[in-house]
Design a protein around this nucleic acid. Structure first.
Lengths: 350, 350
DNA sequence: TCGGGAGCGGAGAGCGCTCTCCCTTTGTGC
DNA sequence: GCACAAAGGGAGAGCGCTCTCCGCTCCCGA
């Protein structure tokens, strides 16, 4: 089975293109990679030959010599002990957030021809594997969705000085790139809006306070309310889950029945909170105004549609990809972070 | 900068392992790939050398010679014209379904070391690119989430006779592998349950009737009801969206106020339908029993929790991956399909 | 006119791996 | 004791590409 017998099977190589163009492999390579000056006339001849042959570079061959794979990994890390009946996959992937990140990352990767590989890191061993994967050149770098404050992965990546970008500031300061949203600013938007609305008794349902997002949203809101002259804001921990939001709202209503405005640190919790409000015969926003955080799909599907602090997830994800590609390209080991401004999206709930 | 000066930089190669084990590259390769008989004693020596050196095969080099990439793509295909203000990414990726599929596929891929690359195909050009990608060996095969009945991608893949597995039966018969759920059987579970509950006036909210899932769920339900002696079942098209489910329920209530049982062809539509029922002062399940389809996260977060026909998404996705790997491995061009049995998950809504 | 430098293109050496040959060794049957 | 088979292991040829040398050609200034 020689190449002559099965011309349709064999893909064109640089050599083929070179032959058609009447130049050497090296020249074709230079044209393909836009490297050094090639005579414009020759340049065109080569391109014509490329299109004529339908040539596409062989990734593997290129990787072999450059030492780059042209692929990055999206790592979803939840290194924590879990009950066997509470499988990781179902829980996290059911969250729309994941898909939005993928979309944002891909929008940057696609034009540059870089592949996005999906990797799950469910425990510390898996994290170690991620680090060794990028050191062994399985992928050129990683963008990380780290779901828990005690996740060891960010630290491991920072220590290994491997190209990596996190979504969200790491729980502890460390030399690693990340993108994040200006949480304090977002919490301030919510606080100012509730006050402007005339809410007299404002409370908040916070996320897990061991997570940076949880702490910042709580403190940012309290600080902004203080600036508005409200020294005390009752707060209840909803743990970033819908059920947690429900429980927190129950407690809030029990202990502060006069509440007329709530800042909830995530849309999902807000959804739960609004269900409880309805169960208690309270109307939103007339009896109680509710503001969420994230602008996830939950904000739109809730009743009434949720006024919320928008986190530009797709933009942030795209920036992660850009930061990572730059880092890989420069080969320098420098960390960069980008903070995005949040918006207040006005819907019906406040 | 020779290898001696930067030992930490250079990764161990087959050659290094061979040297440590005192054998040839070929033998190490045989051991690594479990090929031909190698003397068990030597086998052990080689493995020891592998662990001692920390050797990991170089993907690119292997790909180059085998012609396989060790990667498959998960293609999300929505080849249809879209309004610019209704971006594809946001809409589909916000659906938890996507993540569940990813999880299922990865559970199979991870043990075999195959990478999963994410690819979006938003228009026909992108579909063509997918086909050429796999023909050009960018990936070894594809698993496809095709979102629209008129998506050209399945046909293109079938015509190209490329390794591919679809999630869900294609809209038109064609030689391509797929996994699916036994829809008729699922619809029958719902019908029988509603009848057993004593519902006298049963209706259904269908999905888009130009999609196989839409048609089958509708026809399967009607057929099962007919077997139960109910010749006529009013149906309204909800188009598989929450808003569509709301509108369909409004119409249903207007035209058949006596309805006391509804089979809704997706959980998301059911969620909308139940909101409308509540708005109309109907309680679920006492006034109207509601059964959904999919067992998505919407079924759990709705009020009350939704009784629904469970589609084992993770299992089906895992089977997709298995079918694809088998197909790639055998190099034979044979299509296989696997149909999964649905379950009725009893919750509060019926 | 000539030297030198810049610009452009070619030759060729691998990158790390698999796989086909082929040689060596050992086992087996007569 | 010998022919032959079978099986284990080694040598070496590439897979398709990039990239470093190196040489050629041209142009410019002295």
């Amino acid at each position: 089975m020689t190449s002559d017998q099965t011309p349709a099977q064999r893909l064109p190589t640089l050599e083929d293109v070179a032959q058609v163009a009447g130049v050497s492999r090296a020249t074709v390579s230079r044209v393909i990679n836009n490297i050094r000056n090639v005579d414009p006339q020759l340049h065109k001849v080569v391109w014509d030959a490329v299109t004529a042959t339908g040539y596409v570079p062989n990734r593997a061959a290129r990787s072999l010599v450059t030492g780059r794979t042209g692929a990055i990994a999206l790592v979803v890390s939840e290194a924590e002990n879990r009950a066997a009946d509470d499988p990781f996959l179902g829980r996290f992937f059911s969250d729309p957030f994941f898909g939005r990140v993928v979309g944002g990352v891909l929008s940057v990767l696609r034009p540059s021809g870089v592949h996005l590989a999906l990797v799950l890191a469910g425990d510390e061993d898996a994290c170690a594997k991620v680090v060794s994967d990028v050191r062994q050149g399985q992928v050129d770098g990683v963008v990380v969705l780290s779901l828990h404050p005690h996740d060891p992965l960010p630290r491991m990546l920072a220590d290994a000085a491997v190209p990596a970008v996190l979504y969200g500031r790491p729980a502890a300061p460390m030399p690693i790139s990340y993108v994040d949203v200006a949480t304090y600013q977002g919490a301030k938007l919510a606080a100012d809006h509730l006050v402007a609305r005339g809410c007299q008794h404002v409370a908040t349902i916070s996320g897990s306070v061991d997570m940076p997002a949880g702490v910042d949203r709580l403190n940012g809101f309290r600080e902004a309310m203080a600036k508005q002259g409200v020294a005390y804001v009752p707060s209840y921990d909803g743990g970033f889950t819908q059920e947690g939001g429900e429980r927190a709202m129950e407690r809030l209503l029990a202990e502060h029945p006069e509440v007329d405005g709530v800042f909830v640190a995530s849309d999902v919790m807000a959804q739960g909170a609004m269900m409880v409000l309805r169960d208690h015969g309270k109307t939103v926003p007339d009896d109680v105004a509710v503001i969420g955080f994230d602008d996830s799909s939950a904000a739109l599907s809730s009743r009434p549609p949720l006024t919320t602090v928008r986190q530009p997830v797709e933009d942030m994800a795209a920036e992660m990809a850009r930061l990572l590609l730059t880092r890989i390209d420069s080969r320098a080991n420098r960390t960069t972070s980008v903070i995005f401004d949040p918006d207040l999206v006005l819907r019906a709930s406040a």
